[in-house]
């Protein structure tokens, strides 16, 4: 029973990690760009949702209903993601030709991560805040097991969204254009694809996924801090690598596996050990199978 509950908890955490892993894998697969602002958007959306929905003394304490606050949180993250595209990927591409051949976008996205974190700390301080869902007590109970509604919802939503995403990538014109950009941006241009106009779509989608994940995390664990992005980043990156870079379904499976490993490791060996299994796993995969479980032989490109 104990371990059945662990299994459920692990899958539920994994559902959130899967979201973030999908966001990471999309920018890697499409743009060959490890976008470190994803955890910042995750945290930003959660903090904005808390600030707008809670009542109190803090700035923007509007006491909005949770869904309105969440919608604004998602919108803020998506706009922030567009700004990031403008100043990391697009700017560097315009100045150096191929942005993906440089570590510069990576470094500048790390810069954005830190700036967002500290902007949020300046606005709202660094204390943990409570984020409550009105129907929080409606956890499902069956056979002595507890399944959190927000957890269950996030797992279902992650799978649905990835299904929609992979369908769009396969079947729609814009999806084909995105895959063309992923494989060969110059040739995509020759097909009449306005690369500079399509790339922001990737950032909008990753902004949305990261924001949804952040908000669901906040509702699931009832606590948000300006640091939740850091914790989730390495777990999600491990999930992405596990599933194979650029593979959206791989990211889902990878995210779920990391969630399971984390929960079991903590329950077996205690919370102090938390980081070792995930980092250990990441290093192990990189050494024995850098293409991940589902990756093909070539890294990063043409995985859709």
């Amino acid at each position: 029973m104990q371990s059945a509950q662990q299994l459920i908890n692990g899958l539920m955490l994994g559902g959130i990690l899967a979201f973030v892993a999908v966001a990471f894998t999309l920018t890697i697969g499409m743009l060959n760009f490890l976008n470190f602002t994803i955890p910042a958007l995750f945290m930003l959306a959660a903090m904005v949702t808390w600030a707008l929905s809670a009542s109190g003394e803090h700035i923007f304490a509007l006491g909005l209903p949770w869904y309105a606050a969440a919608a604004i949180g998602i919108a803020v993250a998506m706009v922030a993601s567009l700004i990031i595209e403008r100043f990391t990927y697009r700017y560097l591409k315009a100045h150096y030709g191929d942005a993906t051949e440089h570590a510069l976008p990576l470094v500048s996205s790390l810069g954005f991560l830190i700036i967002f974190e500290h902007a949020v700390i300046t606005l709202w301080g660094s204390d943990p805040q409570r984020l409550e869902l009105p129907f929080r007590d409606m956890d499902l109970h069956f056979a002595g097991l507890i399944v959190g509604i927000p957890h269950l919802f996030s797992l279902g939503l992650a799978i649905t969204l990835v299904w929609v995403l992979s369908w769009l990538l396969k079947r729609s014109s814009i999806g084909r254009a995105l895959r063309a950009i992923a494989e060969n941006p110059d040739a995509a241009t020759l097909m009449g694809v306005e690369v500079a106009r399509i790339v922001p779509v990737v950032f909008l989608v990753t902004g949305m996924l990261s924001a949804l994940a952040g908000i669901l995390y906040g509702f699931s664990y009832s606590t948000v801090t300006p640091y939740i992005g850091d914790a989730v980043a390495t777990d999600a990156i491990t999930g992405m690598v596990l599933g194979g870079l650029g593979n959206v379904w791989g990211a889902i499976v990878g995210g779920l596996l990391v969630g399971l490993i984390k929960v079991f490791a903590i329950s077996q060996f205690g919370a102090e050990i938390e980081k070792i299994p995930v980092w250990g796993l990441l290093l192990l995969i990189l050494i024995i199978r850098p293409t991940g479980i589902f990756g093909k032989s070539r890294l990063g490109r043409g995985k859709f």
Partner: peptide
């Protein structure tokens, strides 16, 4: 273009659909 630059990760048909983009 020189060197063809077809999308080798996509099907023949998808290449043609991209031509019609």
């Amino acid at each position: 273009p020189e060197g063809r630059q077809i999308f080798i990760g996509m099907t023949v048909h998808e290449n043609l659909l991209l031509g019609a983009y």
